[in-house]
Simulated assay, not measured.
Amino acid sequence: MPPYPVLSGPGYLREGLQLLMRPGLRLFVLIPLGINLLLFCALVGLAGHEFGLWLDHLKSSFPGWLSALQWLLWPLFVLLMVLVIFFTFTMIANIIAAPFNGFLAEKVEVVVTGKDEFPAFSWKELIEMVPRTMSREMRKLGYYLPRALGLVVLSFIPGVNIIAAPLWVLFGVWMMAIQYIDYPADNHKMSWQDMLAWLRSRRWACLSFGGITYLVLLIPLVNLVMMPAAVAGATLFWVRERQR
């Protein structure tokens, strides 16, 4: 077992990425990767098309000399798209990939521990897994939304809003840890509250893993590959931290 310190997130994520090269794991990576790539291209194409229409309408409503300002709008649009895609696409992609991520977490655990205590993969088993994984994803959403709303309100309070930005980042890092470590926890039928308590007992290690995951998922296209790597890394986290 690698002697990872408390700030062990990068090590787990790096090993998780290496594990994805195993032949027995490729199916659970390639299928959601293909689905999410199509979704990503569709969202970007739709957003670009709608922005172009809006820009044409804006140009027709203002004097000609203002049309020169359009070159300023495109960089702002790209920046906005990066933010929207991170928060919206990541959430949608994780919901779509949830059943595959559950199976991926199972197979990674088998590779790491050498013990196969899970049902063999079948499409029937995958379909039966959908209601449970969807329910768990909705539970994550229910945890996220009221806290995110509270941070939005905080952002509009003069004086207090100075702490809103670092709190947003800290909360996003914590949610990344919850999002991915929950897959192996759910495979072992650990309840939501018990899972949160387990994470809190390893708070710094969780924040380390969530922090590096948060950073790599901010990178468009790279995030498509790093999502399954985060599942594999989170499973390594689960197995080794429980052994400790």
Rank of each mutant, 00 (worst) to 15 (best):
Y4M: 04
Y4W: 02
S8V: 05
E15L: 12
M21S: 02
L25I: 10
L30H: 15
G34W: 04
I35C: 00
F40E: 11
A42M: 15
V44A: 11
G45L: 02
A47T: 08
H49D: 08
G52I: 00
L55H: 04
H57S: 05
K59S: 13
F62Y: 07
G64C: 01
W65V: 03
L72P: 02
L79S: 11
T90C: 04
A97G: 07
A105R: 12
A105E: 12
V112F: 00
T113F: 04
K115C: 06
D116T: 07
F121V: 14
L126E: 01
I127M: 04
T133L: 10
M134W: 12
S135A: 10
S135E: 11
E137M: 07
M138H: 07
R139T: 07
L151A: 00
L154R: 09
S155I: 01
F156P: 12
G159K: 03
G159S: 03
V160Q: 15
A165C: 00
A165H: 01
P166M: 09
L170T: 07
V173T: 09
M175F: 09
I178F: 05
P184A: 08
S191L: 00
W204G: 11
I212C: 01
L218Q: 06
V222Y: 00
A230T: 06
A232C: 04
T235Y: 01
F237I: 00
W238R: 01
Q243I: 12
